[in-house]
Structure formats: structure tokens, C-alpha cells
Design a protein around this nucleic acid. Structure first.
Ligand code: MN
Ligand code: MN
Ligand code: ZN
Ligand code: ZN
Lengths: 155, 155
DNA sequence: TTGGGAATGAAAACCATTACCATTTAGGAG
DNA sequence: CTCCTAAATGGTAATGGTTTTCATTCCCAA
């Protein structure tokens, strides 16, 4: 666990402190968990993971911290339709990993895909520019998701 | 109110009956309300609107019917981040009105836009084709939303 | 080291949605 | 038209993810 004692990577600390927020063990641990997560954790899953290394953690802090991280832009919050929010680090030590999601409406599986990002960027920049002008709407973020049946669920 | 007594437009009945579902007053009224809705109603808003003309309605029926309508594809269900689902008729008597949404993250306002649909279609058909091939994922639906600040909230 | 506002955590509250179940109803068979 | 039965309904209770409350703890600038 980098950080606490040494200085560790701390790639996110700059942004964090820059916003005037305090560095705390819970926050650090939550980000730690998110950065190691395979995928799309729910608040409770994050709670359980953090709890293993920091048993004093409270579920409330998980929610509060996630909200904060989403605010800052360090974390994305998704709704894949299973009744609970899912969270994912927006960027890692290696920078932003731009991707979108395929959601299976039958089994709930979520596939990340990074293909065709160029096409998306092209489409998005065009559209966003036009929308901004026409509606005077300041776009900060966007969401693209495809729903359907995964390989297994088609049979 | 078309339907019940006369035959009215009943543009949706075909699809409805075709699926083996019964025609009932609650269902009819709910669709009626949706078709007249200015925009993006929540379950409770639909309940209140239906209640005015059909006081015997139960909230449970609202939810069940909406689920059904979403299933059939007559209604779209959205999550604009305000903690409750929002519903919108997928097609009206005049056919499908393809559009996307701009969501203000400050005041919650949702703007429908129908512009640049051609660009979206172009991008989508390309992307969907490629994704289908690569991941063998059968895409049935998609979601595109832009988040940011509306005109009023930028100041 | 210290003061004070920020952050935390346990428990209770919130609230949109769902489950249950007794009652009603649509609509096809006769 | 009348019956019959599975489908549909609606009131109520339950669920469960998320928020609120508030007393306690902690970060960190001075
Ligand atoms: Mn992802
Ligand atoms: Mn709309
Ligand atoms: Zn699947
Ligand atoms: Zn706004």
C-alpha cells in the first residue's frame, strides 16, 4: 500500500489537495481499492474491500467519499440497471483509459471496450460543438452505452 | 380521450394485443397520460396524472405497466440521476421521434435534442456493426447522454 | 502543540421500487 | 349473452440502496 508512510505514486494527490480536501486514511484506502479493482464496483463491494484492510471504515464514508471523487472527476458513477450504482476510477497512474460499455440485459454482464474510440471522438467533438452552440449548454461529460445480449445469453 | 368508447387512433393497440396482453383501463390511461406528457415523467407523476381521471389506480399498477411497456419497447426508461426513473413514450401516432438528451447536472433540467441525428446514426451503425462482430454481442438498444450546465446554471 | 473546522462512523431515517395476496376483470369458450 | 379462468389490479407491508443525523475523532494550518 503506497502512500501513508512513503510518498508512493500519489498520482492523484495533487488534484485532491488542490481542491482543498484533506488526505485521510479512508479516502486513501478507497482510492487504493478502486485502482486495483477488476471492474465496476458497487458501494458495498468497495466497503467490503476497504474493510479488510481498514476495519473501522463505515459505509457512510464510502458513499460520501465516492460522491466527492465523482465531483472531482476522479471517479465515474454508472447505472447498469441492477439497482445499485457502480463506480470506476476515471484515470490511473498511466493516465486516462477512455472506454465505453456493453451491458447485457439478460445476465448483467458489462463489457468494457476501447475499440472505435476514434470514431466516437470524431462523432462526439462534432456533436458537442454543435450542441454547445445551439443550446448554449456547457457539456462536461457524456455517456454512451449499448444494451443487448452477450454471447452466452443469445442461445 | 380516444379509445374506450370510439375506436380512436389506437395506434399502439396492435403491438399491444399482438404480444398477448389484455387491454385494460389502467393500461390505456397510462399510455394516454404518457402520450400527452410534456416530458420525462416519473412513476409518481404518472400515478398522479392517471389518478385524476381514474382514481382507483394503484401505484403498483403504474410500476407494473411501465415495466411491461418498456419490455414491449413502447416506452423508454431513463435515469437522469435524480434518484427516480423517468419514462417517455418511444413512439407516438406520428411515428418514432428519435432524440437524445442533455442533462444539466446542476438544476436537473433535461433538454431533448433531435439535431445531428444523422451523425449519430452514422457513428452508431459503424460502431454497432464492429462491436457485434468483435464481441459477438447482440445490440438491441443504446444510450447517449450529455451532462453539463444549462444556460441558466453557467453564471 | 493546539484549536477548530473537516471528516468519520453508528444508527436511524428516507424513499423509490417490489413482493404479497385477496379481489376484480378481460375476453374467449360455449 | 353468460360463464369461467387466468390475467390484472390495488392496498399494504417489506425491501434495500442511499442519506441524514449527530456525537466523536482527526487533519493540518498557525
Ligand atoms: Mn468500465
Ligand atoms: Mn426525451
Ligand atoms: Zn449475458
Ligand atoms: Zn441547469
Amino acid at each position: 500500500m503506497p502512500g501513508r508512510n512513503g510518498k508512493g505514486p500519489a498520482w492523484w494527490r495533487g488534484k485532491f489537495r488542490g481542491c482543498g480536501y484533506r488526505l485521510t486514511v479512508p479516502r486513501e484506502t478507497i482510492i487504493e481499492v478502486l485502482s486495483k479493482a477488476a471492474k465496476h464496483l458497487s458501494a458495498e463491494e468497495i466497503y467490503l474491500a476497504v474493510h479488510k484492510v481498514y476495519p473501522a471504515i463505515g459505509l457512510t464514508t464510502i458513499y460520501r467519499t465516492l460522491e466527492l471523487l465523482v465531483q472531482i472527476g476522479l471517479v465515474f458513477k454508472f447505472d447498469f440497471g441492477d439497482g445499485r450504482a457502480r463506480y470506476e476510477l476515471a484515470e490511473g497512474p498511466k493516465g486516462i483509459r477512455q472506454h465505453y460499455h456493453l451491458v447485457c440485459t439478460n445476465c448483467g454482464r458489462v463489457i468494457d471496450y476501447t475499440d472505435f474510440i476514434d470514431e466516437a471522438k470524431e462523432f462526439l467533438s462534432q456533436t458537442m460543438k454543435a450542441l454547445t452552440e445551439k443550446y448554449n449548454f456547457k457539456i462536461a461529460n457524456h455517456l454512451i452505452q449499448f444494451y443487448g445480449l452477450c454471447e452466452k445469453c443469445q442461445k
